[in-house]
């Protein structure tokens, strides 16, 4: 029983990383209806960008030394990760997804898989990056906070805070901003949106930019929390985040958050109960939930169009 609370904290930590990826995933899906398999790779690109930028800045300004302004450094690296993730997403959209917009959705899906494979293998083959594992720098000092017998690092608190902030920002953006309204219009009816004078491609581009930037943030925070990066690091978290997004009701922003924390916590308790089949238990929970609520926890039931 003494570990119950610690395990809850562990689950929240894991869920936060899923949430960061799932938010971007679910938003892109909500607007474009594309399972963007490459999203996990934008996450990886974000992590590498943050890694590279950190050391480049370190060479320029001697960052990482005690006395350097951690907050500025963190914000700079964060900006770099967001830019890189957003840029990768926009590029993928322009080059690979846009030409297929009017084609069956499944063509885009296969292309997305191709893009994902390409990014992974390319990074792994590129001599400058290579397949090796790299440690991720502690951009600012890590401290362990004790709560009774349980402990949690300040990084986890940042993860939760950032995930929550992003969720709120995204919800507000989609609900109230002009771009957000256009996004919703595109998501509901492309043709009608076009007739209302909305430039669909611009809106989709913006969607990918935001989604990619979110993936970049997730990459950075994941790098901080689990300091090991490599070209294939996006596959598993990407898959898990996608599942979390579906669990919460894909396209639904608070749902992605909720689904992620449920996944993270369920996985943690499942692993604590029996680590040999922990992974299987987590998937079984998912299947049961979906069988009871086929549209996901917060998803809306849509009627079949006739």
């Amino acid at each position: 029983m003494s570990t119950f609370f610690q395990q809850l904290l562990n689950g929240i930590q894991l869920g936060s990383i899923y949430a960061l990826i799932a938010l971007g995933y679910t938003m892109v899906y909500g607007i474009v209806r594309l399972i963007n398999f490459a999203h996990g790779d934008f996450f990886m690109i974000g992590a590498y960008a943050a890694y590279g930028l950190y050391y480049a800045l370190g060479r320029l300004f001697g960052a990482g030394n005690p006395g350097a302004n951690y907050l500025v450094l963190f914000l700079l690296v964060l900006g770099g990760a967001m830019l890189a993730g957003g840029f990768a997403a926009v590029t993928a959209n322009r080059v690979a997804y846009k030409p297929l917009r009017d084609k069956p959705r499944l063509s885009s899906l296969i292309t997305a898989i191709g893009v994902s494979m390409f990014i992974e293998y390319f990074f792994s083959a590129l001599p400058a990056i290579g397949p090796s594992f790299r440690g991720f720098p502690e951009v600012f000092p890590k401290t362990i906070i004790k709560i009774g017998t349980a402990s949690v690092s300040n990084y986890v608190i940042i993860d939760v805070a950032v995930a929550a902030t992003l969720m709120v920002v995204l919800t507000l953006l989609v609900k109230f901003s002009k771009v957000g309204k256009a996004m919703r219009a595109v998501s509901q009816d492309k043709e009608a949106a076009k007739l209302m004078g909305i430039n669909i491609e611009t809106i989709i581009g913006v969607t990918f930019l935001i989604g990619g930037a979110f993936a970049g943030v997730a990459g950075l925070l994941s790098g901080l929390t689990y300091p090991r990066i490599f070209p294939y690091m996006g596959i598993l978290p990407g898959l898990k985040a996608f599942i979390a997004a579906v669990l919460g009701g894909i396209g639904n922003i608070p749902g992605a958050m909720l689904g992620s924390y449920i996944m993270g916590i369920a996985e943690t308790y499942a692993n604590a109960a029996n680590s040999l089949i922990g992974e299987g238990i987590a998937f079984a929970i998912l299947i049961v939930v979906l069988l009871i609520r086929p549209q996901g926890i917060l998803g809306e039931k849509t009627a079949d169009k006739i």
């Binding site: 089949i277 299987g280 998937f283 069988l291």
Partner: peptide, 23 residues
């Protein structure tokens, strides 16, 4: 499950099933 679920949701179920088999 395919009786109740469609599209991406069904995809996730089949994927989850594949992973359970592996486990």
């Amino acid at each position: 499950p395919s009786l109740r679920l469609k599209g991406d949701y069904l995809a996730i179920i089949t994927l989850g099933f594949g992973e359970i088999i592996r486990t």
